[in-house]
Design a protein around this nucleic acid. Sequence first.
DNA 1: TAATATAGTATTAAAAATCAAACTATTAGA
DNA 2: TCTAATAGTTTGATTTTTAATACTATATTA
Lengths: 127, 127
Amino acid sequence: MGNRRNKSCTTPSVEGCPVDTTLDVIGGKWKGIILYHLIDGPKRFNEFRRLYPGITQFMLTLQLRELERDGIVHREVYKQVPPKVEYSLTEFGRTLEPIILSMRDWGETYRDRIYDIRELPQQEEGG
Amino acid sequence: MGNRRNKSCTTPSVEGCPVDTTLDVIGGKWKGIILYHLIDGPKRFNEFRRLYPGITQFMLTLQLRELERDGIVHREVYKQVPPKVEYSLTEFGRTLEPIILSMRDWGETYRDRIYDIRELPQQEEGG
DNA sequence: TAATATAGTATTAAAAATCAAACTATTAGA
DNA sequence: TCTAATAGTTTGATTTTTAATACTATATTA
């Protein structure tokens, strides 16, 4: 359930809307949590999986690859067995930090309000 | 092409991630442009349609209704014929202003970079 | 030899989102 | 009477996204 713009979306954002451009980069289904956690420092593939068991390997790979393509995330492969791959924010990715942090703060502040609203059965007007 | 979390997404955001909560509210497919334009003041239904002919009535309605449900947008119906319905940010919606404006600025600054990256055929590593 | 760990890819199926077109109501105006 | 305008809703078809599962490689360890 739930989605965000994603994957094959190579046409970046609605014609000329800068807000949309930004959402195109950070709005993918799992990108919020990925960026949220990368702000604290590098993370490994399976760390994300452990943090959110709901995400499939396929989707995690997809989202990370898109962030990598957009220059937001760096993928560092260590030649070891078993393999070790570390994901981190690039310098460019760090330009998103203020936005991520604002979104984090807003979410923390209003989370309950949003949850409550959505639990409510849809009200009808009039009467 | 492209998507964002949407519609029937009544389960708000990935367990406990505040960034995700925020994206759940503002990340819908057309919410970026809706919010972007509402910051300048109220807009009518068909104004949005004229601004972005690509959006269908169905989707526009859907996105506006979700923003309304979440308390972000107010829907004012004027009893006229032909009808007039005006959409505006609520006071709660205005708490999103800093985020919207940051996203706008980021998008304006890096739009070309993102566009360029995505036009490029996927590069391979090594060689 | 078999199992374990990591970081994936590939394939197919299911679910969800989105589109496209037709249809609604109402009054003013030609 | 016919058309236009606004702000939608409804339906069915199509496209995209997401899930689920099985599969890959390789060194280490039991």
